[in-house]
C-alpha cells in the first residue's frame, strides 16, 4: 500500500486544523488494528474470565463480562476515529502533523529545525508491517510523531526529511 494522497477529500471549509492548500497523507489502517489488538486482548481475557466465573459459580457473573465488552466496543470505535484523524503533509518548507478527535493538535516543524529523525517499530508493529517516524528538534516540546506508516513510507519519509533538513539546517 503506497502513500494515500487525499487531495481535497479531508477538507472542510474554514477548519483551522485542516489548511486548504495542503495535500494530506493518511496513515495505514493497520495502525488501528495494532492499537485495537493491544487494547482488546486484555479486555477479552477479562470478559472470558468473568464468563468462566459465571459457568463455575453463579450465572449472574455473566453480566460482569458485559462491562469489558462495552469498553471494548467504545474503544474500538474511538481508535478507528483517532487513527483516521492522524495525518501528515510535507510542504515546501515544513512538515505538518495533525491528530486527535476530541483534543485536536496540529504541529508545524520547519525542516531546518530538525535535529534527527527516529524510525521505530515494535514486535506487533513489525508483524503488521507498520512503523513510527518521530521528528526531533532542539526543543523537548516538539511532539511530532507519525505512527502507522508502512516501512517503505517510513524509510522514504526519513530520507526526504533528512535531505530537506540538511538543505536548510543552519545551526541552532
Amino acid at each position: 500500500m503506497g502513500p494515500v494522497c487525499q487531495h481535497g477529500s479531508m477538507q472542510t471549509g474554514g477548519d483551522p486544523f485542516v489548511p486548504d492548500d495542503v495535500s494530506w497523507h493518511r496513515v495505514s489502517p493497520r495502525l488501528a488494528l495494532a492499537r485495537r489488538l493491544a487494547m482488546g486482548v486484555p479486555l477479552v481475557v477479562l470478559a472470558l474470565a468473568a464468563l468462566l466465573g459465571a459457568a463455575l459459580s453463579s450465572p449472574v457473573l455473566a453480566l460482569a463480562a458485559l462491562a469489558p465488552l462495552l469498553v471494548l466496543g467504545w474503544l474500538w470505535w474511538l481508535i478507528g476515529r483517532q487513527v483516521a484523524a492522524i495525518g501528515y503533509a510535507e510542504r515546501a518548507d515544513d512538515l505538518l502533523v495533525r491528530r486527535g478527535v476530541m483534543f485536536r493538535s496540529l504541529v508545524v516543524v520547519p525542516y531546518g529545525r530538525m535535529q534527527f529523525v527516529d524510525v521505530e517499530a515494535g514486535p506487533l508493529d513489525r508483524a503488521l508491517g507498520i512503523a513510527r517516524v518521530q521528528l526531533h528538534t532542539a526543543s523537548p516540546g516538539s511532539d511530532a510523531a507519525i505512527p502507522g506508516l508502512t516501512p517503505e513510507q517510513a524509510a522514504r519519509l526519513r530520507d526526504t526529511l533528512a535531505r530537506r533538513g540538511e538543505a536548510r539546517l543552519a545551526g541552532l
Partner: peptide, 30 residues
C-alpha cells in the same frame, strides 16, 4: 523558533478558539 503547534479541546472547539504553542529549547520559557 523550533516548532509550533495549535491545540484545541472540545470546549474550545465549541467557542471557536484554540491554543497557540511555540516550542523553544529546554528552559523556563514555554
Amino acid at each position: 523558533t523550533q516548532s509550533l503547534a495549535l491545540l484545541q479541546g472540545p470546549l474550545q472547539r465549541r467557542l471557536g478558539v484554540a491554543t497557540f504553542v511555540l516550542h523553544s529549547t529546554r528552559g523556563p520559557v514555554t
